[in-house]
Design a protein around this nucleic acid. Structure first.
Lengths: 245, 245
DNA sequence: CGGAATGTTGATATGCCTCAACTAAAGTGG
DNA sequence: CCACTTTAGTTGAGGCATATCAACATTCCG
């Protein structure tokens, strides 16, 4: 599938200027397709993978499992994201990776990537930047989950998901796919299902958004972003996206 | 100062095997010394630095500033850490960097580093790994601040600081420097000063640790680590350290 | 169509925040 | 080196956001 390369290149271009040579080099990477069923683990804590993945369709998530069995979602990944790029240089997984819904990913052997980095350093730098933006998102998540009350936290979270979906060209008519249950959102935001449910209703009543049938409908971006103190700077995109509506 | 190079190499070796050639290449890097007063900002949100830093002495912290003016500490850095390595590939700072106490850092021009990466890719990979471990620590912080109650959160935090201090050879007679106020610890853990103070007393009463005069005294590592569910795997050190006592 | 997963609502409990007063320690200038 | 000021730590009381428990409604799915 050439499409994996398209998606991969589109994503990298959101934050990095790629030369023709870079693009050609990326297209030369051998990629295998892998699909996963909803809730299927792609990689588990403790694993030592020898490939990295690029998400093609669907949503993939990273999570920690606590001794109690509870789950903490760390990040959600959509088309073009590299949810386990860190396995290139960090041998053992300190968290797990699972598909949220039916998802397809492209897998690329570490060997191929490392060889390419030596030959074309700028590709390595682009993917390095990818992992650094990942880290910036983690930092923002720390602040979001530590300092904001649940309604604002949820607003910020939804803004981020929507904004990133837009960059990945997944927004259509003011809505984007978001096939998470409210319980899962709670497991990402460090809040109980009940509290998420009430926060969701509060945001809906404000007329800022609607969330149903696995989609997020944006109703008033400015209001939602303000309420969640969302400023997309930390996503480090080259062109800032116009917020729709 | 040759000492900056020693500290830098010692830290990289904690997670990466360096060849003689790698070490020599690192020692060839031109480094300038910079010192900072307590609470002085080294880099501010929005800045676009053209150097990166390695901490030599003291403690340096990354933090977000919220619209209200409140501060969220994101990470704390000691000897050998690269607190702003991400500026190599992410132009604009999405957070700030300040000295906690009197600190000295070595600054290295991005230009020198990038040139070295092209010439000796393995150095780039080592520093890439450094930034990836940083990200792993951020992930752990998300889980810590989202899922654990304040006393356990504090225990986990103190274990991490102590463990990393030990790797940086800063532990002496069962104690390490930790020149943070309880208020600052609260700003890291998303808890109020009052609550931190009470949690601190609870941990002390358990006989697990003592915290005073800018130092953390470890009294019962096993108990503290168990209470905080601390498992150092996410720090990705090559040799795991024996927990003292 | 029936069962399971997900979402909704209400009631109660509690961990943590906020405010406030006070104590102890550290830093500073005379 | 001591009086003074500032900063950091401690303790108590009250209120609130969020967790927990429980029942029920709705949607999904085989």
């Amino acid at each position: 599938m050439a499409r994996v390369h398209d998606v991969m290149i589109h994503k990298l271009k959101e934050h990095t200027a790629l030369s023709r040579k870079d693009e050609a080099a990326l297209r030369s990477l051998p990629v295998k397709l892998r699909s996963a069923a909803p809730a299927e683990d792609l990689v588990r804590q403790g694993d030592q993978p020898d490939v990295s993945m690029v998400v093609l369709t669907g949503m993939v998530a990273r999570y920690h499992t606590l001794p109690s069995g509870a789950r903490q979602y760390l990040s959600f990944h959509i088309a073009g994201d590299w949810p386990d790029a860190q396995t290139l240089f960090v041998d053992k997984m300190d968290h797990s990776l699972s598909a949220i819904n039916a998802a397809t990913v492209g897998t690329i052997a570490h060997k191929s990537l490392l060889a390419l980095f030596e030959r074309v350093p700028s590709i390595g730098f682009a993917i390095w930047r990818e992992t650094l933006i990942d880290a910036a998102i983690f930092r923002e998540t720390i602040t979001n989950n530590s300092k904001r009350n649940v309604p604002a936290r949820l607003a910020h979270f939804l803004c981020e998901q929507y904004y990133r979906a837009q960059a990945a060209q997944l927004v259509k008519d003011g809505s984007c796919p978001l096939e998470l249950s409210q319980e899962q959102i709670g497991e990402a935001l460090g809040a109980s299902l009940t509290t998420i449910n009430r926060a969701m209703q509060a945001l809906r009543r404000k007329g800022t958004m609607e969330f149903r049938l696995g989609r997020l409908y944006m109703r008033n971006w400015a209001r939602l972003a303000e309420f969640g103190q969302f400023d997309p700077g930390y996503l480090h995109l080259r062109r800032s996206l116009r917020a729709p509506k």
